[in-house]
Structures are given as C-alpha cells and as structure tokens.
C-alpha cells in the first residue's frame, strides 16, 4: 500500500483575502493568497483548503478571482468551502479553478444538492463538511450554520447517507475540539472512518504534530486538516510530514 496520507493546510478567506484570527476574533489580513498557497505547496502540502467565511453575498464573489489567481500558479488540489447553496455555486467555483467544493449547511437543508452536484460534476469534487458535537458517549450530533444550529442528525448516520448521495469525501470537524489545541476527537474520527468507504479528513483541535499522527493512526483518517499550527509558524508542513513518516505513516515527502 503506497497511497500517502495527506496533510491539508486550511486557510480562511474573507472578501477574497486570506485572513487569520484567533478563535474567530481579530481577523487580520494574512497576506497574498497566491503567496501563501505557494509557500504551503513548497513545504509539501498535499492539498489546500480555502474556507470562505465571508458573510455577505456581494463579497462572496470576490473569492472567484482569488481562486483563479491561485489555480494559475499552484499545481496541487484546491478545495473551496463556505456558502455553497446551489449547483450553480459548485459550477462557478470549479470553473474558477477549484478541484473540490465543500458543502456543509446546504447539505443538511437540501441533501439533493449533494446528489445533483455529484451527478453533474462527479463525486470526486464533492466534499461534504460535517460539524459534529458529542451528545453522549459514542454519539455525535451534526450542527450547521458554523456550529450554531443543532440538527438532530447523528453524525455517523449522516456521513453514511452523504456517501450514498454521492459525496466523494467527508471533512469531519469536531466542534468540541475545534480551537482547543488538544487533538482531534479520535472517537468521532474512528466511528465515521469505520462506517464509510469514502475518504475522511479529520479536522478540529490540532495543537501539535502528534495530534496529526494520531488522527491517522488512531482515528483512521485518510487526511488531516490543520490551520493554526502552520499559519503561526509553529511548524512547517514538511516538518509535520517527516514527523509522521518517522512513525511509519506513508507520506509524500517532497
């Protein structure tokens, strides 16, 4: 088996610019998106995910020229999520140069969107993002609207349903862990990874390199996503990959 596990830096985008904040506060301009993406590419990132946190729909369109600019110079897969509500949104992002589109809230309010988008553009470009919160031992509930609204849906059941609807991948974020820097919710990651036959990206809670390795080895994830440990210069992607390779996790070392 030589399929490498992936490391995916995640960048927040506001009005077409990459921003960084601490716990969603104090959003600051983090620099040119092309430069940042290129830096992660050079460090050996396997993909890059952009999360559009823009509130207004006017500003939302600004992400398209940004994705175009990045895609013309960075030749690794790019995923864009945030505010995707219709098949037309998927098309516009793919046309701008995204390889995959993340769908979160709209998947819950309109599951048929996932089926329609997967049918039209292929499962390979449809990532369903799930924000989940522990509600009982071994039980997690799906939340939407950036973690504000409970849905009553069981996260494992929901992941299975989305895989059936044509999702090509699940981006799984633990709301309990997000921002805590105390590691992934490994129980959640393992439960979802074992339940579906499409790849799972673990997200939420990474505070150090062992957390990334644990997400793969203990959580059974196919890829790990992290933001702050890379943004603030704590670690490079290359360091993370070498650390994980030393624990016998198959990694693409650039």
């Amino acid at each position: 088996m030589t399929l490498a596990k992936r490391i995916i830096p995640c960048l927040d985008v506001n009005a077409g610019r990459v921003v960084k904040g601490v716990n969603f506060l104090e959003l600051r301009d983090a620099g040119d998106p092309v430069e940042i993406a290129r830096r992660y590419d050079q460090q050996g990132a396997d993909e890059i995910t952009f999360l559009d946190i823009t509130a207004s729909s006017d500003d939302r369109d600004l992400i398209l020229p940004m994705i175009e600019a990045v895609a013309s110079q960075v030749f690794i897969p790019l995923t864009v999520g945030g505010g995707v509500r219709a098949v037309a949104d998927v098309r516009r992002l793919l046309n701008a140069g995204a390889d995959k589109v993340g769908i979160n809230t709209s998947a819950v309010t309109n599951p048929q969107l996932v089926a329609d988008a997967a049918h039209k553009y292929g499962s390979q470009c449809i990532v369903v993002a799930i924000d989940a919160k522990a509600v009982a031992p071994g039980k997690w509930e799906v939340y939407t609207h950036g973690g504000r609204n409970a849905t009553g849906l069981d996260a494992v059941d929901w992941a299975q349903k989305m895989a059936k609807f044509g999702a090509g991948e699940i981006l799984l974020t633990s709301m309990d862990k997000d921002g805590t820097r105390s590691g992934f919710d490994l129980g959640l990651t393992r439960a979802v990874s074992d339940a579906i036959e499409i790849p799972v990206i673990a997200s939420g809670g990474v505070g150090g390199l062992q957390d990334l390795a644990d997400g793969i080895k203990l959580g059974g994830a196919d890829a790990v996503l992290a933001a702050s440990i890379f943004h603030f210069g704590q670690h490079t992607v290359q360091e993370a990959k070498q650390f994980m390779a030393a624990q016998h996790i198959p990694m693409r070392l650039a």
């Binding site: 396997d46 499962s123 090509g168 991948e169 990874s193 074992d194 036959e197 499409i198 790849p199 196919d222």
Partner: peptide, 9 residues
C-alpha cells in the same frame, strides 16, 4: 479500509 475513489498521492 480501502476507500473508493482512490483519492490522493
């Protein structure tokens, strides 16, 4: 598990 699609490097 082996996942299908094969997605990655």
């Amino acid at each position: 598990r082996f996942k299908v699609p094969q997605m990655g490097w």
